[in-house]
């Protein structure tokens, strides 16, 4: 059974369509990258799955059930978001105490080790934490909750590079020991590219891409070489982007590239190399907008 199954999922706020006929599924024990520009609908999608908001139309199942107001299903999910508000008077230790009571798989020892890793002051008022420390607290709760389905929505605003690396390391190590379904929503695509096993790309409320990241990496390539040969090579493929400098052209192509194709490119003097996940996402998003 899928952890999450969505079919024709649509969410409107007044006359704004935040999600438009989105269908996908999230499977057990995988790390997903939920990518897209600001306003693409990422947060809305996570809010619907976690019962924070209601669906306008379409089908949505969380562990096979409707998520809205579903205690049993929601207890198996943790949703860490950048915009999380904390009550006044709550200190770091209070947030951890409550998380420990509310998440059934909470690992207190792991939580305490993360608090030490991130140098979080246990007795400080949460509302007085810096942006980065607030994010570190969210990350701590999200990891130690060990929920079967874990959402991180831009979890590291204000976190420095070292702390982010710490987060990736702890996430991977804990994921290896306690496999679960993790959804990372972020703009720092290159940083998480190695973590992500599957990419969901949203643009203007539409699901643009739903593919294993390995597959995507082999499908989107940069071809660089003399203009005439590159254009001929590109003719049978989807050109996402083209830039020319003198007689040299670089095109970003989408299609399948088997060994014969790669050999052919090499013989023609075309330099064929995979683009980064970030570049692939940028090109795919821009291409779609250009078509419109």
């Amino acid at each position: 059974m899928s952890v999450v199954a969505a079919a024709g999922l649509t969410k409107r706020f007044g006359d704004v369509t935040a999600l438009d006929d989105v269908s996908f599924s999230l499977e057990e024990n995988a790390i997903y990258g939920l990518l897209g520009r600001n306003g693409a609908g990422k947060t809305t999608l996570m809010q619907l799955i976690t019962g924070q908001n209601t669906v306008t139309s379409g089908e949505l199942r969380l562990f096979g059930e409707h998520p809205f107001e579903n205690e049993q299903a929601l207890m198996r999910v943790v949703f860490i978001k950048e915009s999380q508000k904390y009550p006044s008077g709550y200190k770091v230790k209070h947030v951890l105490t409550m998380a420990g009571r509310l998440f059934p798989n909470w690992d207190e020892e792991f939580a305490q080790s993360l608090v030490d890793d991130f140098n979080l002051p246990r007795n400080r008022d949460v509302r007085k934490l810096s942006r980065g420390m607030t994010s570190a607290l969210g990350v701590t709760v999200g990891l130690a909750a060990r929920a079967e389905l874990t959402f991180f929505d831009e979890p590291y605003l204000g976190l420095d590079a070292v702390a982010r690396q710490l987060f990736y390391d702890r996430l991977l190590a804990d994921y290896a020991a306690h496999p679960r379904t993790v959804v990372l929503s972020t703009h720092l695509i290159d940083e998480v590219a190695d973590l992500i096993e599957h990419v969901l790309l949203l643009d203007k409320g539409k699901l643009l891409l739903d593919a294993p990241s390995e597959e995507l990496r082999g499908e989107v390539m940069d071809a660089t070489g003399p203009a005439a040969v590159v254009d001929e090579f590109a003719a049978s493929r989807l050109v996402l982007h083209r830039e020319q400098l003198g007689g040299t052209v670089r095109v970003t192509l989408r299609g399948s590239f088997d060994n014969a194709e790669r050999l052919k490119a090499k013989k023609l003097g075309i330099d064929l190399e995979p683009v980064s996940l970030q570049q692939a996402v940028v090109r795919l998003t821009m291409e779609r907008n250009a078509v419109r």
């Binding site: 205690e71 929601l74 998380a99």
Partner: peptide, 20 residues
């Protein structure tokens, strides 16, 4: 008033249902 304006959003964020 604080229970609703501040603790409620935190509770929702922690996966608590409105009813509970």
């Amino acid at each position: 008033a604080i229970a609703i304006s501040q603790i409620f959003p935190f509770a929702l964020g922690m996966g608590v249902t409105r009813r509970t």
